[in-house]
Every structure is written in structure tokens, then in C-alpha cells.
Design a protein around this nucleic acid. Structure first.
Lengths: 145, 145
DNA sequence: ATAGTTGCAAAAGTTTTGCATTGTA
DNA sequence: TACAATGCAAAACTTTTGCAACTAT
């Protein structure tokens, strides 16, 4: 391993630790590895299963149950957002800001739509005693023909 | 049973049979009962489990698996629309027209929003080779405080 | 030590599938 | 009779929970 690689790995690690600490979560080995996979690099959309496969493939020992629990803890801590688009499986998005999604039904893939690109108008007043928590827009797309 | 009740029941039955035939589905006993429960009266939002509970409660013998299969057949035939709002369970809507939903996260309840009330603007061009199939809007609401 | 966390095996749900049975022509 | 369609038990998923093991004071 080169000096540069060592330094980059150490930096990613330090960043992941800081992120977990800031969120009030202890930086355990499993969480650290999951955090590094999720938060190093550009925004991502993952399912529990595909993240588990990825980290196991990288030689990390974690159970799928821990991946689920960790994804929910991260979500509760505001590090992730859950996206409901497919009845078959849950997606988690590292982009927690205001935005919407294309969902490619054939592929099971999500693509972000910036929040300032899209607007929803005419939402009626919710039933009394209830307040709007969030407005989710899912643009479902399929392969042409 | 009064004459009026008998007549109403017969009418609902005939209507259900016609609906199934038109959709190219054989009017079997199970499908008929499910169709009558779904399509008699105003529009409804059901889960497989709650529909199953309802028909079993009414003395009909159907398995939960058949309810699932039937809901999917009805959906394929255009009699129902599937609504994805909750990672935990699938909802089916008897209103197949253009409309959107409030989702009461605490209750697990759906309320229709007429399609002409609400508008989504600024949806970007989808990636090439893909066409927009549908734009779903889910207004998530929670109990105030 | 010990109070609180954590991670995972086992359990609980939900949904799908394979095939014996039933219905139709 | 043959041929397809049906309904459900069993299987396969996804997700949650209970508790033994671990951590940080």
C-alpha cells in the first residue's frame, strides 16, 4: 500500500468516525465500515441486501440484521433517508436534502431529481389535526417499448 | 332475508360477474366474493391482509395466498392499482383513475387527492431510452404534535 | 463492577411459487 | 378426454426482536 493510499484511507476513516460521533453513535467496527461505504464518494441509493453484499465482498464480517439495524439507526440520526418506491424492498438514500426521484422499474434503480427543479402545487389542506410531513414525488420510468 | 336484500345481493353479484368477465377473468367463487367486497360501495384502499380478514370474517373460505394472487390479477387486469407508500405492506386502490394520496403514517390510512387538484411541474426529461410511466405523489401527514 | 450498547441468531412477517385439483370445452 | 386455469400449502423472501456479549466509564 502506497503512502497516498494509506493517507486516503486514514482520512476516510477519521471522517466516518467524526460523522458517527456527531450523530451520537458509537463508532464500532461494523458501523464504521458501513459508514465508509455509504459516505465515501458521491451520493448513493442502497438496499440492505446490496450494501450487505458489498461490505461482505470487501471482506468485512457483518450480518444482514446488523445492516438493517444500522441503516435504521443512521436514518434515525438523520444520516440517511428512507425512500419507498418498491413494495418488494426498502431503499436508503445518502442524500438527505430536499429532492425527488426517478425510479427505473425494470432495473430497480433510483436517480435523484433536484428539489429545486420540481414543484408540486394544489396540495389540499390535510384533514384537521394533521400536518404535512413531506411530499414525495416518484417519477416511474420504464424502458421505451 | 327481505325481498329487497335478495335483489340487492343478486344485483351486486351480477355486476361482479360482469366485471370479471369483461376483464377476462373467470368468475370463480373466491374471485366473486373478493370482487363484491372490493367493488360494491365507494372506492377503497386495502391491504392483502385486511381484505383477507374481512372476507374470512364474512364467512368466506379463501386463503391469504389466493387473496394476494387475486389482487395481483385484478391489478394486471386494470381493476385495481397498487399504491406504494409503506415499506411494510402493499396497498391496493379500487380507484384506478388519475389521482394522488395523503398517507397518514400513524394510522396506515390512505386518502385520495383528486388528480385535477394537484399538479407537478418541472419534471426533467428522463434518461434516454426511458419514458415516464406515471408520476406518483404521496403527501405524508402525521398527527399534529 | 456495571449500566448501557451493540450485533446477530432466531423469529416474525409478508409475498411468491409449485403443483394437485377443479373447471371448461 | 384433454387442456388450461385455479387455489392453497409450503417455500422464499424481507425485516424485526430478544438477548448474550461487549464497551466505556
Amino acid at each position: 500500500m502506497s503512502k497516498q493510499m494509506r493517507e486516503a484511507a486514514a482520512a476516510a476513516n477519521a471522517q466516518a468516525i467524526a460523522r458517527l460521533r456527531a450523530a451520537g453513535l458509537r463508532p464500532t467496527r461494523q458501523r464504521l465500515e458501513l459508514a465508509r461505504h455509504l459516505f465515501t464518494g458521491p451520493d448513493r441509493h442502497v438496499t440492505a441486501e446490496n450494501l450487505h453484499g458489498e461490505v461482505v465482498g470487501a471482506g468485512i464480517k457483518v450480518s444482514l440484521a446488523t445492516v438493517y439495524n444500522t441503516l435504521h439507526q443512521f436514518t434515525g440520526a438523520g444520516l440517511l433517508r428512507q425512500v419507498v418506491v418498491d413494495a418488494a424492498r426498502g431503499y436508503f438514500d445518502t442524500n438527505t436534502g430536499d429532492h425527488q426521484h426517478f425510479f427505473l422499474e425494470d432495473e430497480g434503480t433510483l436517480i435523484d431529481i433536484p428539489g429545486d427543479a420540481i414543484a408540486v402545487s394544489g396540495v389540499p389542506q390535510p384533514p384537521s389535526g394533521l400536518r404535512i410531513d413531506r411530499v414525495d414525488v416518484v417519477v416511474r420510468v420504464t424502458r421505451e417499448n
